[in-house]
Computed example of a mutant assay.
Amino acid sequence: MKKAISFLLAAVLGISMLAGCGAKEADPVAVNVGAMKGPTAMGMVKMMEDDESGATAPNDYNFSLLASPDEVTPMLVKGKLDIAALPANLAAVLYQNMEQNLSVLAINTLGVIYIVEDGDTVQSVADLKGKTIYASGKGSTPEYGLNYILEENGLNPETDVNIEWKTEHAECVAALAANPSAIAMLPQPFVTTAQMQNENLRIALDLSAEWDALQEGKENPSGMITGVVVVRNDFLEENPEAVELFMEQYASSVDYVNANTAEAAALIEKYDILKAAVAEKALPYCNIVCITGDEMQDKLGGYLEELYAQNPKAVGGALPEDGFYYHGA
């Protein structure tokens, strides 16, 4: 009898120990995340709030909101950031410069560039013929994207339109304010800012939609892409579970931002990205997404191919290999 009781106690103790092991919390993982103030960071605001309350555990995020790609790049290269949201073509450039120590986790922002005017003269890309367009981003993705759309619609960017390149988006907004008949190519949220200054300003063309129209019928359609989320491969190899958890939490955050515009706008102001009034109006046009896997590779790979065709330096001199695209742990 004593032996039976001893055996029973030992069994209960063993089960208790196993239960304790099963209930043990995972060790916290510090994850340094960077994003630029604008659409590429706006999809993260629910994660940022959840992190403050500890709801993202065991991941413990340290978010850095930066002003430009010039600030993000050195922090990523030096290992001060583990995960970062940055321009799509910059990710390809860094993939080459960092000796392939980089993978794309997701597309986080599709095209945010629009043609706007105070009037009703532009209904299609063909209507841009003979027009003067104020734009910024010469030598970067806005120029390459516009050139592709113009050329595929039978217009020569050099002779059929007059593109006046400005240094900053704000200069284009000022040009629109000074000349009511002007046409401009602007990204969000600058479109919304300009519309708040001139209520008659309308979105004439969504360049992301124009790109998609040109891709219809293709086996692996690409997309016009603004931003992606990347991870350093050495961090990924050391912390695959933390990266997978980040992906789940980021996807949920994007869903929340897209479904709760007013609440998300308040968070966007809380984290000093944009004023809530501007954010609430701009959000529906910011194309914030979380596209992963094969669809990500098709859309991003095709986009980078178009940039490479115009200027190989735009993607680091060579197209990234398949290992550039993350497909899960």
Rank of each mutant, 00 (worst) to 15 (best):
N198L: 00
L283Y: 10
N239M: 02
A67Q: 14
S103R: 15
G217I: 12
T261S: 11
H169K: 02
G323F: 10
A85I: 10
V231L: 02
L283T: 03
N108L: 11
P180R: 07
V257W: 06
L86A: 02
L81I: 08
G119K: 03
A329K: 15
N239E: 12
L66P: 00
V104Q: 04
N32R: 15
A177H: 10
Y148G: 07
Y256K: 01
I288K: 02
M185D: 04
I115F: 06
G316W: 00
E244D: 15
I291L: 13
D27C: 00
L76S: 03
V257I: 12
K80G: 10
A4C: 08
L76A: 08
L13Q: 02
S222I: 04
K166Q: 15
L245D: 13
K281D: 09
Y303T: 05
K270Q: 14
G227P: 00
V104M: 04
Q297V: 08
N287I: 02
M48W: 10
G14L: 14
N97W: 09
A26P: 02
A177M: 08
L176R: 02
G119P: 08
E248M: 10
L94P: 01
N147H: 13
S181A: 15
N162Q: 15
S252F: 11
N258A: 04
F235M: 01
